[in-house]
Design a binder for these strands. Structure first.
Lengths: 321, 321
DNA sequence: GACCGATCTGCACATATGTGCAATGCGCTT
DNA sequence: AAGCGCATTGCACATATGTGCAGATCGGTC
């Protein structure tokens, strides 16, 4: 790769173009002539500048105009809500996509150098990972919260792809968690958890500054990955139903009242207990779609999140009844 | 004004449009249909959103790519430089305009609620004031650093217009300083400085969190306002030359070595002494044009600024010789 | 209710920006 | 030196955005 010098030039030009475009309001035409290149190259250069995070665009709600929805969610649940505007008519696929894109951009300012972010995996997080904006950080890391392999497939491809997208976007070190999502026998987990290689990861998880997760729900329109990926068998499902489970966070299940004790599946899960999770100073939950409402209510009851990124319709439903 | 309800709606729509445009990357066309209006209205709505500061755009230099110029200025002068790219061929008018526009945008993140910003007046600050982006702050104020009236005109219009632009942009309270730029007799100043109404302003100045100023220079291509506005007579000029003055900050003069003692004019000036100024935690200086180089070197020697916003050519010249 | 002025709207057009594609250039291999 | 693969460039065209203008709308006034 002899693009050291060239790549450097490209970044320098991109930075200059970004300055001229965003700080001095020149047109691309004018920038082109200053940079002695064509307008179309400038267009591409600016695209590049945005892509590598030289340009950061934020949308603020003036403090005196926080939507009443956000305010009411804060009052009722003590959670900072970020309500993503999406028309009610949008289908579930697009809705998730749009919530995920907003989430990715909201996340940017939350994560910085010297931080550790724990992430769960699932359709929601996968979507978020595809929309991350690059941001250079130093000495930061991404740690996987729960295992991803199961009886049928290793599942690693799916989860590790999400992880590596996060790692790439932030220039962070990626810490995988190479264990099954669920153990067949809780004792296996106990034993494995004593291994030094695993304890190292558990230690990192314990020290994370941000946790990011979606909500699993067996009843969602698009049932969550865990429920359809072959991670659970019929007996497991029955057991969950029997335990009155309404959802899960990183494969740890909970009931409508937020409790998660005495749910046998949790002893077999590789995810962090909800009480451990609540020790993290910032816990961001991304939710899209009304069908996750029961799971969301349960998660709120469990006090598992500090920030909620949610689509408008679901936010409204949350406040009804 | 019955636009309470309407204005509110407009802001709400603008916020929504901004979200959809900047966070979800929808086209204006798509936003128009979600908002049930025309695309052109959306274009205007987004313009409005930017105007009232709902949207904030920042251009970062990735830490590992701070231009060597900025780095060298930091090494030599212990000052954070913000180098504004402007082609060398640009004329002085446009150059000032572009530096001012960048300065206005760089300033945004520096100023916030509960802060007090002191500002000087002059061609540079006037240009900056015309490019400020709105940003809502609370309990903040703008305080004038030096008087503006002189023997011929009150000069108030000029200075107060600058002040009020700053006040409007930040929603800040504006504290004028209704005294002459220079007193004929230093004793008049001493006496006036004991007045409670004046002391109140001086107290506010003493507590400011940011100071913003340009540099005055008798030798600049566009000689500074102070030197042509009738503030000084021939005897004054002679005295300044005799004192080896190379420039001024808020009508306080200094020499090439940064010293400002024993310059008789300063006893008559309404501006804050340089030692008082250096107590402010952030002191931002805006400079455009090579002809201000001697004034800039002097100001740097005086240690009067913590941040320097300067055009590229001048920054380069600064590092030569 | 007619009138006025100020504001808002959408259309039609003017600009500005994004992108497929063919051409060019550059480094490397043979 | 010729050949190859890959990245970069500018052109021409496709989209997307900005804006003058005429008509519509809304309060307030007489």
């Amino acid at each position: 790769m002899a693009n050291e010098g060239l790549g450097s030039d490209k970044v320098r030009d991109a930075l200059r173009a970004a300055h001229l475009y965003y700080m001095q309001d020149l047109t691309m035409e004018a920038i082109a002539s200053e940079l002695r290149t064509s307008r179309s190259s400038v267009s591409r250069l600016l695209g590049f500048a945005r892509e590598i995070g030289l340009v950061e665009i934020q949308v603020h709600s003036p403090a005196d105009r926080i939507s009443s929805v956000q305010e009411r969610i804060r009052d009722q649940y003590s959670v900072t809500a970020h309500v993503v505007p999406v028309p009610d008519s949008t289908n579930e696929i697009d809705r998730l996509e749009r919530v995920a894109m907003s989430a990715a951009r909201i996340l940017g300012p939350f994560f910085d150098s010297n931080m550790t972010m724990g992430i769960a995996w699932g359709s929601t997080l996968s979507a978020v990972s595809r929309h991350l904006q690059e941001k250079v950080t130093h000495n930061s890391q991404i740690v996987q919260l729960n295992g991803a392999s199961n009886a049928q497939t290793t599942g690693i491809g799916y989860a590790s792809e999400i992880m590596s997208r996060f790692g790439r976007a932030f220039g962070a070190y990626v810490q995988q968690f190479p264990v099954p999502a669920f153990f067949d026998d809780p004792r296996t987990k106990e034993v494995l958890w004593r291994e030094r290689s695993i304890r190292r990861v558990l230690e990192i998880q314990k020290r994370m500054d941000i946790a990011l997760f979606g909500l699993g729900s067996a009843f969602a329109d698009v049932p969550s990955h865990v429920y359809v990926g072959g991670y659970l068998d019929d007996a497991d499902f029955e057991q969950l139903t029997h335990s009155d489970v309404v959802g899960d966070v990183a494969t740890v299940f909970y009931r409508a009242d937020g409790s998660s004790d005495d749910i046998p599946m949790n002893a077999r899960s590789s995810g962090p207990s909800l009480s451990l999770l609540s020790k993290v100073s910032r816990r961001v939950c991304v939710v899209s779609g009304r069908s996750k409402l029961p799971a969301l209510r349960g998660a709120l009851a469990a006090g598992v999140m500090t920030d909620l990124i949610v689509d408008e319709a679901t936010a409204h439903s949350l406040l009804e009844a």
